[in-house]
Every structure is written in structure tokens, then in C-alpha cells.
Computed example of a mutant assay.
Amino acid sequence: MQLCLVGLGIITHAASPPQLYWKSMLPNTPMPKPISDLLHPAVGKEEKNTNVDVGGEGGGVSVSAGNKGKQVYVGAGSPFQYLYAATETQLHDDPNAALFFLEKDMLPGKKMKLHFTKTTNAVKFLPEQVAKRIPFSSSKIPEIFSKLSVKPGSLKSQIMKRTIKDCEEPGITGEEKYCATSLESMVEFTTSKLGRNLWALSTEVEEENQTMKYTMTVGVRKVGGKRAIVCHLKKYPYAVFYCHETEATFAYYVPLESDDGGSKVKAIAICHTDTSQWNPKHLAFQVLKVKPGTVPVCHFLPEDHLLWIPK
């Protein structure tokens, strides 16, 4: 649907463009591609009747209707949330399963079959003023569906409810989590925890949506220290990021090259040294055949997810 900003009493030229906001809050931090790709081109233009596409029944939330439900995990939690058990569907069909590996295997020459994917298609950040006018709570589901013209009981409505529930579930001990429904709210959360002198990093893939055999090359290195925030793009009609700061977590830069030499990846990997509180049936344990709390578990970040670390 088209959500009219004027209908909500907002004129877009009254708000600073997101790029100016970013520079004012993070003057020494280049804006990563996953962020710039999510900025709506209409925001900041002096137009009195600007529409923001927040996705109708056919768009926004990525649903593979012709793929027998693959890559749609309505009943399962995100693989990047540690309290959820994986479903059989996730084990066999979730492309994120391949992203998990053991820290001891992070060596030049290590071969891996990886599938880097983007979480959603055609979603954008809403202007902060608009996002604040749309509820984001399980107690407000009917109002949310009404504002976004989503049919109750549809697959899209189920995915939206799953995302909201993921955001409302408590985290593990030592984890601070927050779901950002606008660029501004994400920046405010990260800077309140880590300060304003930050790097915002993401995985960069030369060839999109390709399943390939990759080899780790020379140049693996740790980035940042013990403090980091990771933000995962969720399935929703507009850009929503699940951000969390966890203890005993380290980040790495991992260069990869496809075995045919046709694609290179500048990958960001997150390694968790303490997984003792994770669900024993979490996707990582089932893929790697290890038990909670025994060995450090790592995963690559998909392209449209973000790592925030102090410089």
C-alpha cells in the first residue's frame, strides 16, 4: 500500500534528510551500502504529497509463494536469536544454515559452501516521524494491520507477527536487545551504547544470491574489541532491524574467493565464545554437531546485516 505522509500530518521537507542526520550523529563513519540501499528516495524532497511504499499484500515481506514455502519460517525464530530451536524446515532449507562454522576452522585455505542472501526485497526505512505513528507491539496487531492494509490470517500477517514476537522475547543473560523501526532509532541505540566514533561494517558480495564454493584467503583478522552491536534486518513491510549487544563476542574480517575465481567476498564474521545459554536445539548446534558451551561458534553476517564497533 501507499502510506501518505501528508495524511499523517507530516511534510517531508520539514525533516532533515537521513544523510544529514547520519553525518550529524556519525561524522567519522561512512554510511554502509545496506543502509544507503534502504533510504527512501522521496524522503527529504520538497514535495507536499509524498507517498512511502510500505508494502502491500504482494510486496515488502519476502515470501517465496512458488517455492513450496521455502525460506519462509513463520513458526521458527531467527537463527540469530539464541533461545529458539530450529525447525526441520530451517535445517534443510534455510540458506542461513550454511553461514555457521567453528572458530577453529577460520583459517586460510578453508573451503566452505556458502549462500549469501538478502533478507527482504524492496523495503525501505520509514521517516522517523512516520515510524513513530505506526505501533510495533503484539498488543496493537489489529491497528498495525489496519494501517498497513494487511489481511489478518494471511502469510504476510503471520510473518509480521513473528517479527514482532521476536523483538518482544527476552534475550539471554548479558544480552541487550532492541528493535529499531527507523534509521534514527537504530543510530540512537548504537551511539548510546558505543559512542559516536564508530565503524558500521557489513558483508560485501560481488555476485548476489549465488550458492558457491568459497575458500578463505589470506587476510583473516579480528576487528574491534569485546564491545559490539550486531543489527539483523527482519522480515517486515518496512525496514526493521533487530539489534543486540552480547558479551563474549568477537568480530572478524574474513576474505573469501569462489573456487572458480569469479567472485570475492569481504565477509564479516561474528564469533560467540560462550554459547552455554543458547537453546540446545539452536540451528548452529544442529548444523555443526556440537553442544552448548563447548566450543566457540561463529557465523557470517548476511549482506544486509550490520556490525557496529568502536574505532
Rank of each mutant, 00 (worst) to 15 (best):
G7N: 08
I11G: 08
H13Y: 08
A14V: 02
Q19P: 01
K23N: 03
M25E: 15
P27F: 04
T29C: 11
M31T: 14
P32Y: 12
L38I: 02
H40W: 05
G44S: 12
G55K: 07
G55Q: 05
G59F: 15
V63E: 07
V63M: 14
G66E: 12
K68I: 01
K68Q: 10
V72P: 00
Y73G: 07
Y73I: 11
P79C: 04
A85P: 00
T87G: 07
D94P: 02
P95F: 11
N96T: 11
N96E: 01
L99C: 12
L102C: 05
M106Y: 03
K110R: 15
K111D: 02
K113A: 05
L114M: 09
T117H: 12
K118D: 01
A122M: 15
K124Y: 05
L126I: 07
E128G: 05
E128M: 06
P135V: 10
S138P: 00
K140C: 01
I144H: 12
L148Y: 02
S149D: 02
V150C: 05
V150N: 03
V150Q: 08
K151M: 10
K151P: 00
P152E: 15
L155T: 02
S157K: 13
I159N: 01
I159F: 02
M160H: 02
M160Q: 02
I164V: 09
D166K: 06
C167L: 10
E168R: 14
G171W: 10
I172A: 11
T173G: 01
E175N: 15
E176W: 14
K177Y: 01
S182A: 06
L183Y: 09
S185Y: 10
M186G: 08
V205Y: 01
E208N: 09
T211N: 14
M212G: 04
K213N: 07
T215Y: 01
V218H: 10
G219C: 12
R221M: 00
R221T: 00
A228R: 13
I229T: 06
V230S: 10
C231R: 12
L233R: 15
K234R: 09
Y238W: 07
F241V: 05
F241G: 10
Y242H: 11
E245V: 15
Y252Q: 13
E257V: 14
E257S: 15
D259C: 13
I268Y: 08
A269Q: 04
S276Y: 11
Q277E: 14
W278A: 13
N279G: 03
K281L: 05
H282K: 07
H282T: 06
L288N: 12
K289T: 08
K291A: 08
G293N: 13
G293I: 15
T294M: 10
V295R: 14
V295Q: 12
P296V: 07
V297P: 00
P302S: 14
D304H: 07
L306P: 05
L306N: 09
L306A: 09
W308C: 05
W308K: 09
P310C: 15
